[in-house]
Amino acid sequence: MIRVSGLEKKFGRQTVLNGIELDIAEGGIYAILGPNGSGKTTLIKCILGLTHPNEGEIFIHDKAVRGKWKYRNAINYLPQIANFPENLRVKELFSMIKDIRQSPGRDERLIEIFNLEPYLNKKLSTLSGGTVQKVNLVLTFMFDSPIVILDEPTSGLDPLAMLKLKELIRQERAAGKTLIITTHIMQFVEEVSDRIVYLLEGKIYYSGSVQGLLEKTQQQDLEHAIAHITKQELYA
C-alpha cells in the first residue's frame, strides 16, 4: 500500500531522516514511535508531499508520489498542530473542506460523536485547545479514504473524547483501512496498534509487533521497552 524506499531528508546540516525503508501493507494500525526529534512528523509530511525528501521515493498503490497531488484523495490527515484560518466559523470550515474535496463527507455523525454542535457557529480563534483538536478529528474522519494518518491524535483530548477516538479508530480498522498513528502515549499504542515502527535518529530501529519488541528488549511492557531503547541510545 505504502512503500518508502531510501528516504533521506536534511534541514540545513541536520539530517532528520537517514535512509528509511518501510513497507506498509493494506489494512491495520501502524504506530510510528520514537523520541522527540526522531523524524516521525517529517516522515509523515514526506508521505503527504508537504516536505520534499532529498533522496528516495515514496510509493502509494505502487505509484511514486513525488510532485503528484491527486493521490491525496486517498489520504485523511490529522496534523499535529492544528492551524486553522481564524476568521472562519467551525461550520464554514467543514463546508469549505467538503467543497474543496468535492465530496459529501459524513460530518454530522462526527459532530454528534464529539459533541460539537454548540460550537458550530463559533469562530475557530475562540475555541479551546481540546475543542480545536475535536474539530481537527472531525475534518480528518469526515471522508471515506483508504489511508488515515494521525499525528498525535490524543493531544488535548479529555478521557471521554479519547474513548470515542479509540472507538472510531477501531471502526476504521474494521472497515479495512490503513491507519498510521504517531503518539507518545504507550498505553494508547498497546491498546490499538497492530504493528509498531520505532524511529531513532532518522532510522528505523525496529519494525514489527509489540510482542516482538518486548522480546527483543526483554522488558515487561511497551513503556519500559521504549524507555530501554532510548536509554541505551543515550549511553551508547
Binding site: L48, L50, W69, K70, Y77, P79, N83, F84, I100
Partner: peptide, 16 residues
C-alpha cells in the same frame, strides 16, 4: 496570516 489556511490546503488533494 494565511499560513494556517495554506497548511490546511496543502494536505488536501489540491495542486500546489
Amino acid at each position: 496570516s494565511s499560513r494556517e489556511f495554506t497548511e490546511l490546503l496543502l494536505a488536501q488533494p489540491v495542486r500546489r
